Amino acid sequence: MAVPIALPPSLAKKILEEARKRGVTIEEYIVDFLTRDFDPSDRAREYVEVALYLLDRAREELKRGDVRQAAEKTWGAAALAVKAYAMWKDGRRLTSHGELWDYESLIESELGEWVYDAWMAANGMHTCFYEGWCKESHVETAIKHVEGLVKTVAQRLRELKNR
Protein backbone atom coordinates (compact mmCIF):
# COMPACT_ATOMS: atom_id res chain seq x y z
CA MET A 1 0.00 0.00 0.00
CA ALA A 2 1.43 3.35 -1.04
CA VAL A 3 0.81 6.23 1.33
CA PRO A 4 1.19 9.78 0.04
CA ILE A 5 3.35 11.96 2.26
CA ALA A 6 3.21 15.74 2.21
CA LEU A 7 6.47 17.56 2.85
CA PRO A 8 7.32 21.24 2.93
CA PRO A 9 8.64 22.23 -0.51
CA SER A 10 12.05 23.15 0.90
CA LEU A 11 12.52 19.65 2.40
CA ALA A 12 11.19 17.91 -0.71
CA LYS A 13 13.68 19.94 -2.79
CA LYS A 14 16.58 18.91 -0.52
CA ILE A 15 15.60 15.24 -0.73
CA LEU A 16 15.38 15.45 -4.52
CA GLU A 17 18.77 17.20 -4.71
CA GLU A 18 20.42 14.56 -2.50
CA ALA A 19 18.91 11.71 -4.49
CA ARG A 20 20.10 13.25 -7.77
CA LYS A 21 23.55 13.93 -6.33
CA ARG A 22 23.82 10.23 -5.44
CA GLY A 23 22.35 9.09 -8.75
CA VAL A 24 19.42 7.28 -7.13
CA THR A 25 15.65 7.57 -7.21
CA ILE A 26 13.92 9.47 -4.46
CA GLU A 27 12.39 6.20 -3.25
CA GLU A 28 15.81 4.55 -3.09
CA TYR A 29 17.26 7.51 -1.18
CA ILE A 30 14.43 7.45 1.34
CA VAL A 31 14.48 3.67 1.87
CA ASP A 32 18.26 3.81 2.43
CA PHE A 33 17.77 6.52 5.03
CA LEU A 34 14.81 4.93 6.80
CA THR A 35 16.26 1.42 7.00
CA ARG A 36 19.80 2.31 8.09
CA ASP A 37 19.23 0.80 11.55
CA PHE A 38 17.41 -2.34 10.34
CA ASP A 39 19.10 -5.71 10.53
CA PRO A 40 20.44 -6.85 7.13
CA SER A 41 17.66 -9.32 6.29
CA ASP A 42 14.91 -6.81 7.10
CA ARG A 43 16.70 -4.12 5.14
CA ALA A 44 17.08 -6.46 2.15
CA ARG A 45 13.35 -7.25 2.26
CA GLU A 46 12.49 -3.54 2.30
CA TYR A 47 14.73 -2.98 -0.72
CA VAL A 48 12.87 -5.70 -2.60
CA GLU A 49 9.48 -4.30 -1.59
CA VAL A 50 10.44 -0.86 -2.88
CA ALA A 51 11.88 -2.42 -6.07
CA LEU A 52 8.55 -4.15 -6.76
CA TYR A 53 6.72 -0.90 -6.02
CA LEU A 54 8.98 0.97 -8.46
CA LEU A 55 8.24 -1.54 -11.22
CA ASP A 56 4.51 -0.98 -10.68
CA ARG A 57 5.10 2.77 -10.78
CA ALA A 58 7.16 2.40 -13.97
CA ARG A 59 4.20 0.69 -15.63
CA GLU A 60 1.89 3.49 -14.45
CA GLU A 61 4.26 6.13 -15.81
CA LEU A 62 4.28 4.35 -19.19
CA LYS A 63 0.48 4.38 -19.28
CA ARG A 64 0.62 8.14 -18.70
CA GLY A 65 3.20 8.48 -21.48
CA ASP A 66 6.09 9.54 -19.24
CA VAL A 67 8.84 7.34 -20.70
CA ARG A 68 11.65 9.09 -18.80
CA GLN A 69 10.08 8.59 -15.38
CA ALA A 70 9.22 4.99 -16.23
CA ALA A 71 12.83 4.44 -17.26
CA GLU A 72 14.22 5.91 -14.04
CA LYS A 73 11.93 3.83 -11.87
CA THR A 74 13.02 0.72 -13.76
CA TRP A 75 16.67 1.61 -13.07
CA GLY A 76 15.85 2.19 -9.40
CA ALA A 77 14.22 -1.22 -9.12
CA ALA A 78 17.31 -2.93 -10.52
CA ALA A 79 19.65 -0.98 -8.24
CA LEU A 80 17.57 -1.92 -5.22
CA ALA A 81 17.54 -5.58 -6.26
CA VAL A 82 21.34 -5.57 -6.37
CA LYS A 83 21.47 -3.75 -3.03
CA ALA A 84 19.06 -6.28 -1.54
CA TYR A 85 21.18 -9.20 -2.71
CA ALA A 86 24.34 -7.64 -1.25
CA MET A 87 22.60 -6.94 2.05
CA TRP A 88 21.09 -10.44 2.19
CA LYS A 89 24.21 -12.31 1.14
CA ASP A 90 26.98 -10.30 2.82
CA GLY A 91 25.28 -7.77 5.08
CA ARG A 92 26.92 -5.20 2.82
CA ARG A 93 25.46 -1.77 2.06
CA LEU A 94 26.28 -0.62 -1.45
CA THR A 95 26.58 3.15 -1.76
CA SER A 96 27.96 3.91 -5.21
CA HIS A 97 27.36 3.04 -8.83
CA GLY A 98 30.78 1.37 -8.91
CA GLU A 99 29.83 -0.92 -6.04
CA LEU A 100 26.57 -1.78 -7.80
CA TRP A 101 28.46 -2.74 -10.95
CA ASP A 102 30.96 -4.84 -9.00
CA TYR A 103 28.22 -6.62 -7.11
CA GLU A 104 26.19 -7.25 -10.25
CA SER A 105 29.15 -9.30 -11.49
CA LEU A 106 28.99 -11.43 -8.35
CA ILE A 107 25.25 -11.96 -8.73
CA GLU A 108 25.74 -12.88 -12.38
CA SER A 109 28.34 -15.50 -11.41
CA GLU A 110 25.91 -17.00 -8.90
CA LEU A 111 22.60 -16.75 -10.79
CA GLY A 112 23.57 -16.77 -14.44
CA GLU A 113 24.35 -14.69 -17.47
CA TRP A 114 20.77 -13.44 -17.73
CA VAL A 115 21.54 -11.09 -14.79
CA TYR A 116 23.90 -9.19 -17.08
CA ASP A 117 21.08 -8.65 -19.57
CA ALA A 118 18.76 -7.34 -16.85
CA TRP A 119 21.50 -5.08 -15.48
CA MET A 120 22.38 -3.66 -18.89
CA ALA A 121 18.70 -3.04 -19.64
CA ALA A 122 18.41 -1.16 -16.34
CA ASN A 123 21.48 0.93 -17.04
CA GLY A 124 20.06 1.80 -20.44
CA MET A 125 17.03 3.11 -18.58
CA HIS A 126 19.23 5.24 -16.32
CA THR A 127 20.76 6.81 -19.44
CA CYS A 128 17.29 7.23 -20.93
CA PHE A 129 16.19 9.22 -17.91
CA TYR A 130 18.99 11.72 -18.44
CA GLU A 131 19.14 11.72 -22.24
CA GLY A 132 15.54 10.89 -23.20
CA TRP A 133 16.48 8.74 -26.19
CA CYS A 134 14.54 5.57 -25.50
CA LYS A 135 11.09 4.64 -26.64
CA GLU A 136 8.18 3.11 -24.76
CA SER A 137 9.04 -0.31 -26.20
CA HIS A 138 12.56 -0.07 -24.75
CA VAL A 139 11.15 0.58 -21.29
CA GLU A 140 8.62 -2.25 -21.60
CA THR A 141 11.42 -4.68 -22.46
CA ALA A 142 13.64 -3.39 -19.66
CA ILE A 143 10.82 -3.77 -17.13
CA LYS A 144 10.49 -7.45 -18.07
CA HIS A 145 14.21 -8.06 -17.60
CA VAL A 146 14.41 -6.13 -14.34
CA GLU A 147 11.27 -7.79 -12.99
CA GLY A 148 13.00 -11.16 -13.41
CA LEU A 149 15.95 -9.92 -11.39
CA VAL A 150 13.79 -8.43 -8.63
CA LYS A 151 11.59 -11.52 -8.36
CA THR A 152 14.60 -13.85 -8.27
CA VAL A 153 16.17 -11.84 -5.46
CA ALA A 154 12.82 -11.82 -3.63
CA GLN A 155 12.64 -15.60 -3.95
CA ARG A 156 16.14 -15.96 -2.51
CA LEU A 157 15.13 -13.85 0.48
CA ARG A 158 12.02 -15.96 1.05
CA GLU A 159 14.10 -19.15 0.92
CA LEU A 160 16.44 -17.70 3.53
CA LYS A 161 13.54 -16.72 5.78
CA ASN A 162 12.03 -20.23 5.53
CA ARG A 163 15.22 -21.98 6.60
Rank of each mutant, 00 (worst) to 15 (best):
G76T: 07
R163M: 13
S96G: 03
L157G: 10
C128G: 07
D66Q: 04
D56P: 03
R158A: 14
V67F: 04
L80I: 08
L54W: 03
F38Y: 15
V48D: 06
G124V: 07
C134E: 08
I107W: 09
V50R: 05
E17M: 03
V150K: 03
R22N: 13
G132A: 05
G124S: 12
A142V: 06
E17S: 06
K144L: 13
A79L: 09
Y29M: 00
W119R: 02
Y103L: 11
E60T: 11
S105M: 14
A58F: 07
P4K: 12
R45Q: 14
L16W: 01
E18R: 00
A142E: 05
I30E: 04
H145P: 11
D39W: 12
L160S: 15
M125Y: 02
L54Q: 09
E147L: 09
V50W: 00
H97D: 08
V50H: 04
K21Q: 08
V48R: 00
T152D: 11
F33D: 00
W75R: 03
T95L: 12
F38I: 12
L106M: 15
E61C: 06
L11Y: 08
R45S: 14
V67R: 03
L149G: 01
K83D: 05
S109N: 09
V24M: 03
F38K: 10
T35K: 10
I30Q: 01
I143L: 07
E159H: 11
G124D: 05
R68W: 02
V139N: 06
M125I: 05
V146Y: 04
T127P: 00
K83A: 07
W119F: 09
A71D: 00
F129S: 02
A118L: 03
K13Y: 12
A81D: 11
Y116V: 14
G23D: 02
Y47M: 09
V153W: 09
T141A: 15
R68V: 00
V153I: 15
L100P: 02
A86E: 05
R156H: 15
G148S: 13
K14A: 15
A58Q: 01
